[in-house]
Design a binder for these strands. Structure first.
Length: 226
DNA sequence: GACCAGGCACATC
DNA sequence: GATGTGCATGGT
């Protein structure tokens, strides 16, 4: 499986990459995008982030200071604007209370302490936390998302019902803890998930299918479907 | 008009 | 512990 996951990365990189995929210009923008992208297409998130920029609200103190209605208007294009207003504010409140609103100060915390801390914030679940940790805080965690699960399960490498932590542990145990590689790998999965596999779900020409047919070992299965 | 998109919290059993 | 439900908009 170590060989398989690394082979998949190399194959995707040589076929599609490098993507230079990057979910924002600043660490705070990346964290904001991670919250807004929950169950939402990225194109919708981009519109909401542009609204925040235009309103001078891409700043944790400004977000805490403004009216609910102002945030609702800005976040409306990304959907779930009422819950996302609460979630973005709860993250900003934590960031301001604990780090004076400074993402760089938060980043100095060790991963083993920062991950549970983020997971303790209302509205930050495992995927959102890991997105922030990898792309905004330079921590070597592998971000698992719907695309990752779909890609691996479609090629028979895990159960479609594998839980988040098991799939994350699978990647992190079989790959070197390399921040740049984890970022690029996730970016490639997002790229292929959006633009390739969805449009050609059973394409026999799929390079991954060819690779996996060539006899690469198969991963342990996750939780069995109930 | 139906379905899907890079989740999460909460209620209920 | 597992399962169901609400949250909302925009693209296809």
């Amino acid at each position: 499986m170590r060989r398989t996951l690394l082979s998949i990365y190399r194959l995707l990189e040589s076929h599609f990459g490098p993507t230079h995929w990057w979910p924002g210009d600043t660490p705070f923008e990346i964290a904001t995008g991670a919250i807004l992208t929950q169950n939402t297409a990225w194109t919708s998130v981009e519109r909401a982030i542009a609204n925040l920029k235009d309103a001078g609200l891409l700043d944790p103190h400004a977000i805490l200071a403004c009216e609910d209605e102002t945030l609702h208007r800005a976040l409306r294009p990304s959907g779930y604007f009422r819950v996302k207003t609460k979630r973005l504010r709860s993250f900003c409140r934590h960031l301001c209370d604990r780090y004076d609103g400074d993402m760089a100060r938060m980043t100095r915390r060790p991963l083993a302490e920062l991950r549970p801390e983020l997971l303790g914030i209302a509205g930050i679940g495992p995927e959102t936390a890991d997105d922030i940790l990898l792309y905004a805080c330079d921590k070597p965690v592998f971000v698992v998302d719907a695309y990752t699960r779909r890609l691996l399960s479609r090629h028979g490498l895990c159960s479609p019902n594998i839980d988040y932590e098991s799939l994350r542990a699978l990647f992190e145990s079989r790959l070197n803890a390399d921040v740049a590689m984890f970022r690029e790998y996730h970016g490639l999965i997002v790229y292929t998930g959006k633009d390739f596999c969805r449009s050609q779900p059973r394409c026999d020409a799929c390079p991954l299918r060819k690779l996996l047919r060539s006899g690469a070992p198969v991963a342990a299965k996750g939780k069995a479907p109930s």
